[in-house]
Design a protein around this nucleic acid. Structure first.
Lengths: 119, 119
DNA sequence: GCCTAGTACCTTGCAGTGCAAGGTACTAGG
DNA sequence: CCTAGTACCTTGCACTGCAAGGTACTAGGC
């Protein structure tokens, strides 16, 4: 599966961007995050998420707070720190830049693609 | 540099997408590709590009043709194969999907971010 | 013929990531 | 106790971008 592999690569990095975005306004715990990402058509497993969250937390970008649950073990509610907010802004810019680049490249392509695939 | 690292991740996959896009209409050789990517603000080194092109070629997505140069060694001009064109379409869809997802997530974020950063 | 500079192609090794699989620990109910 | 459900975490694999270093062709000076 060539395409699938590339698409996985595409989603790299955005995942982090999306997560930081989702944490920008709410305290959220992992299962909730997975759920929200799924609603935006980004399928992620917890084996992906936990290392990512831990990494961001150790880097000082996230903070967490334990809260007990009535239906199981306690939950870790994450939220952004001030540096995390700064990162979010940087990623937002980067995202817009990349978007711009892709637009630029794609715009020069589409017209000619049509002609060529016509053959 | 946390942000820089993430941004590198972000560009993963897109690079492949951009390259396939650039090859959609023209035969291009490596140095030319680097140049065009640079014009779209995507800085890439040849150490990144050669393995990528070789990989795509071995997967049957690209084909190449040697052409002699007047100012040095011969050049390898790449172009898309039919499966490569198919990949381009798939990546295009994936790109739009991701774009949609990010929009969805970001739209829910921005409003509240403003309020919160106001603190 | 030999040397240097310029161009083009390619390989190796490192650091970083997503993900599947497997593991620990808490709660509730029989 | 034992099972089921939930939540958190770790390990190992495959893959990638990139810096650094290498090979090979041409042209021009001597």
């Amino acid at each position: 599966m060539q395409a699938q592999n590339t698409i996985t690569q595409m989603r790299r990095g955005f995942l982090e961007f999306c997560i930081v975005s989702l944490l920008a306004n709410n305290e959220v715990y992992t299962a909730e995050l997975i759920d929200r990402l799924k609603k935006a058509n980004l399928l992620v497993t917890d084996g992906t998420l936990y290392p990512l969250l831990n990494r961001l937390q150790k880097a000082g970008l996230l903070q967490y707070r334990w809260e007990e649950s009535e239906s199981g073990p306690p939950r870790k509610y994450y939220s952004l720190t001030e540096p995390g907010r700064k990162l979010l802004n940087e990623l937002d810019s980067a995202w817009q830049d990349i978007n711009e680049s892709v637009k630029l490249i794609r715009s020069g392509t589409k017209k000619l693609t049509k002609v060529q695939t016509n053959e």
